[in-house]
Amino acid sequence: MFLFQDKPLSPDLQTLLDAVALLDISEFRLFELAYRAWYGNDAGSRQLEQDFADYMFCDEVPIWVRHYARGVVKQAALSQSGKFPYPPKDRPADSASIRRGLRVLLGLIFILVFLIVVSSLSPEWLQFGNECYFPPCY
């Protein structure tokens, strides 16, 4: 038995949470999809963050999110199978971002290999003596 009872969720909040569970996405992602469906373009980061902050701290669900969430729940109820193609597919990553990611990965690998080589050869270079001061040799 709990000392404090949670207040019941509003129907709008419950519908939003049901839609998030059905689509298996985050609440913020639902806001992005709802904005794209309602306005026809991607949201600006400031506007979406402000609307999401109002939702998180004040439990205010914008009309476009409410409409989208109701559509998701309604489509799921009409669908016979568990899968339904309601959210639009994400755009595939462009080749420029893939190339940039590979360059960053190769740079990190190069730095790691360089640090390993320097740490293994440093006793000979610094000539502290015949002793190794790094963890493998104590």
Rank of each mutant, 00 (worst) to 15 (best):
I25E: 07
G101T: 07
W64D: 02
S81A: 13
P11V: 03
D12L: 08
L105D: 06
S26R: 13
A96T: 12
A77Q: 14
L30S: 04
P11G: 03
Y55L: 07
Y35N: 04
E131Y: 09
G44V: 01
L102R: 13
V20H: 00
P8H: 00
S26I: 06
G129N: 02
S119E: 14
L23S: 11
S97G: 03
F114N: 11
M1Q: 09
F31M: 10
K89F: 07
N130G: 09
L102P: 01
V73T: 09
I109V: 15
L108S: 10
Y68P: 00
S119W: 03
L48M: 10
R46A: 14
A93D: 09
Y68V: 04
F4S: 07
R91T: 11
E60A: 11
M1G: 15
W38D: 12
V104I: 15
Y68N: 02
I116W: 06
A43Y: 03
G40V: 06
L108Y: 08
G44H: 11
I109F: 08
Q80C: 06
N41I: 14
S97E: 12
V20E: 10
C132N: 11
C132E: 04
F84L: 08
Q75R: 13
L112Q: 02
E32T: 12
P136H: 01
N41V: 15
I116R: 06
S10F: 05
P8K: 07
I109W: 05
R100Q: 12
A77N: 10
D54C: 13
P92H: 02
R66M: 09
R29I: 06
F57E: 15
L112V: 06
L33C: 08
C132W: 01
F110S: 14
D94K: 08
S122R: 04
P123G: 03
E60R: 14
K7I: 09
A93Q: 11
I111K: 06
R100S: 09
A43I: 05
C58S: 14
D42R: 15
R70V: 03
C132I: 02
G101K: 10
Q80M: 11
Y86M: 07
Q80P: 06
P135R: 01
S10G: 05
F128D: 11
F134H: 01
Q5V: 12
T15L: 05
F84P: 01
I63F: 13
A53K: 14
K7L: 13
L3S: 08
I109G: 04
D12R: 10
S120G: 10
F4D: 07
I111E: 06
S122C: 07
G107F: 04
Y55V: 01
Y55P: 00
D51Y: 07
M1K: 09
V61N: 02
M1N: 10
F134A: 00
L3K: 12
F28T: 05
F57M: 11
